[in-house]
Design a protein around this nucleic acid. Sequence first.
RNA 1: GGAGGAAUGGCCGAGUGGUCGAAGGCAGCGGUCUUGAAAACCGCAGUGGUCGAAAGGCCACCGGGGGUUCGAAUCCCUCUUCCUCCGCCA
Length: 427
Amino acid sequence: MHDLAYFRANLEAIRERLATRGFVLDVDRFVELDRRRRAAVTETEQLRARRKVESAEIARLRQAAVDTEERQRQVRQIGERIAQLEENLRELEDAFREMLAGIPNLPHESVPVGPDETANVEVRRFGEPRQFDFAPRAHWDLGPALGILDLERAAKIARTRFAVYVGLGARLERALINFMLDVHTREHGYTEVLPPFLTNSDALFGTGQLPKFAQDLFRIQDYDLWLIPTAEVPVTNLFREETLEADRLPIKLCAYSPCFRSEAGSYGKDVRGIIRQHQFQKVELVKFCRPETSYEELEGLTRDAEQILRKLGLPYRVVALSTGDLGFASAKTYDIEVWMPGQGAYKEISSCSNFEAFQARRAGIRYRTAKGKSEYVHTLNGSGLAVGRTWVAIVENYQQADGSVVVPQALVPYVGAERITPRGEIA
RNA sequence: GGAGGAAUGGCCGAGUGGUCGAAGGCAGCGGUCUUGAAAACCGCAGUGGUCGAAAGGCCACCGGGGGUUCGAAUCCCUCUUCCUCCGCCA
């Protein structure tokens, strides 16, 4: 959500800026809606002011024992007129708010301008893709062969795009979650939270998933509850409609959660394996900070996420998304992409964004400045990391010619094994 | 799930139909006094919207939504949250 006064005062510049991310702002419609809405507000309020005065007059007259029947009748008519105007105003407000809530954030000035992901800019790289002396296999071959991943039974009990992890496969997933949480809490200063995995509509509006992206979510029947698509939603909304003390900032939280996405419209994309699932596990990093430090905090948050890959010895690169590839609420985003030998490509494993005050305005998250004024915080988040994709990266990068997988050193204490070999836990 | 009670400004707490945006206290800010501070005293102080160049008006907000009324913090309905008791449960 944009700041209304700022938005009105800079319409043309904003229209041009939004165009770089492929959003067409209907300036005429905005101006017209805003004009009509304000006219309705003025008219309604003037009538309300009149009713107030008249009512006070009635009170006075009645104390003086004067008959007020006729006056009451007149004021009743004013009241009826107000009710009509209020209904009209409500419609205008709804239309206006809906339009405003559907406008994406403005890209930060440092974001490369371009129409789509082809304009993304690589900012750094870590490690080199390993040279195999055999043909590396993809995880959808390795997993079932090792008996650690069962997609067929998952489809039977749920549907396609779900997975069952078995034996050391399940253990590896759990090990990664604990490893990531330990690194972020012990070494990077984040506080761990374990939030609800379902949230209400208000929370999803706050972070920007609603109203525009309802089709990407799973909804619970008969309740105003949805399965979270990311822990960003419950964690960012922790402080919804709250004013934080400035000396508490920045607040750094991390959370493990499963994430649920309908993946509507992604037919034919990443259909094999577990790259794209309806349910996956993720450790999320979330920050609340003062506006003047948010870009510094974005660099730090991205480094924190990268650190997991470094410790695991997985090659990756960091990419600055172009204006055309930015998510709805983001002002700037770095994607971290890990090397996947089975697919011969770098695949997104984390997305780290600064939302500036866009989410804070929607969710009403403020802080009190030194002068005592309350202002909106900046919010940031990033995956630290997507656990399922990290699982894939380990299996594919650490595979051996005999089909086994060597466990990265940093993870051995968590997995309790140095190597994953077929065990046949479930036939 | 059932029965009762509660929800007022940063905090505490008055207020059951008519200048109540809301007494009082605490905390906050400015000032007087003081070498300085404290105390005391005086004053200022909420959020959002809207009109206005500004000064300043006006409107809304007493947990959320709806209703009754000329007029609602006050009455009615409903929802939410918290507390007490019963039931159930991990």
